[in-house]
């Protein structure tokens, strides 16, 4: 029984995240029962859509054993390009979506080409584009904000449908598509294989470079979609749009059980990690914690969760190994008895 449980958690690390989320809810609920309500959850899902989307994107990159640190700037850039198109005389929704998501895709492709075909280590490449994209944004806007988003587009994220808001629905649908893609489709499995063992994948004939390129473009597209939601939810696009998003997304992915060593983790876990981070920041707002405590508390909780997560995992792994050792020992003794 215990063995089965250990195996289950080792295979599906996102279960730990679920446990942590439930525990966190209960802890907050004991202090203030009002926190546990359907409305809270709807709010968290609404606030968290952007983070969930970019976390799903960055997870694809992390699973290939690379990292994407440029999403914060890319989100800002895509939102800026899209937003400035919305300010033209007669904007059409389709072209707007194409511009925003297209910017994300191009940014992701740029990262991917640098990493896969030009031999730049991903952390260097994306730190470089983090600066590059932010600089392009500043060059393009000249430092001014975009704050006239049409009313019809703002309403898009303000009117609930079937209890949830449009951005939440879009996020849930996209998550479903991604889960299918990673679990059932050839290129999705390539992403896991590449991260698990680069040399092994090469020998198997997997197009490793194209797989890495695909992962980065996926991250770019998700960032572009997050930029759409940013424009609709926030309504203004400052030059600082999306700053720090990459840090939150990487943290969420890691909390959700995606290993930076590549090859393991699931999109569900990543989304849950994002929900947990969003729950923490929502609870801080809920208790009206002064703003300057915010990053201290979330940093502290983040470290506690990461430490707890890894300690539990190490413990489980040791436990499993011990169990296997014992099994082998027993079998050996049996054999010895028989032969004697």
């Amino acid at each position: 029984m215990k063995q089965k449980l250990i195996n289950l958690i080792l295979r599906r690390p996102e279960l730990l995240t679920v446990v942590i989320i439930v525990l966190y809810y209960l802890c907050i609920g004991i202090v203030n029962p009002q926190f546990i309500a359907m409305d809270t959850f709807v709010r968290i899902l609404y606030n968290g859509t952007m983070l969930i989307l970019v976390t799903a994107g960055v997870s694809a990159v992390i699973i290939t054993k690379n990292i994407d640190a440029s999403i914060g700037s890319l989100l800002g850039l895509a939102a800026t390009f899209g937003g400035s198109y919305l300010n033209t005389a007669d904007p059409s929704l389709l072209i707007f979506i194409m511009i925003t998501v297209g910017t994300g895709l191009l940014g992701g492709l740029f990262n991917g080409i640098g990493v896969a075909y030009c031999g730049v280590p991903s952390i260097i490449m994306t730190l470089g584009t983090l600066a590059l994209f932010r600089g392009l944004l500043a060059l393009y806007t000249g430092g001014s904000w975009i704050d006239t988003v049409p009313e019809w587009f703002l309403n898009f994220s303000r009117i609930p449908v079937l209890g949830l808001y449009y951005p939440t629905w879009i996020t849930l649908i996209l998550l479903g598509v991604l889960i299918l893609f990673f679990g059932r489709f050839r290129w999705g499995r390539y992403i896991y294989a590449t991260g698990n063992s680069l040399d092994g994948s090469l020998l198997q004939g997997i197009p490793v470079k194209r797989t890495v390129l695909l992962a980065f473009s996926l991250s770019g597209v998700m960032t572009g979609i997050a930029a759409l939601i940013f424009t609709s939810q926030i309504g203004t696009i400052p030059t600082q749009a999306g700053v720090g998003m990459e840090i939150k997304a990487i943290a969420a992915a890691v909390i959700g059980g995606i290993s930076l060593m590549g090859g393991t983790g699931s999109i569900v876990g990543a989304a849950l990690g994002a929900v947990l981070l969003e729950t923490i920041s929502y609870s801080l707002v809920f208790f009206r914690v002064p703003g300057y405590w915010n990053s201290f508390i979330s940093g502290f909780l983040l470290l506690v969760i990461v430490v707890a997560n890894s300690r539990i995992e190490i413990y489980l792994r040791n436990e499993k190994e011990r169990e296997i050792d014992e099994k082998v020992k027993r079998r050996y003794l049996q054999l010895a008895e028989k032969t004697l």
């Binding site: 943290a251 890691v254 201290f296 508390i297 940093g299 470290l303």
Partner: peptide
Amino acid sequence: SLILMTQVNSLVITLGSSFLFSGLALTLSG
């Protein structure tokens, strides 16, 4: 010591701790 204790990639730990330290600095300046 956190990196040693958790065996987690140094990138993640220092990302998290940079939140912690900058938050602490902001709180102290308050």
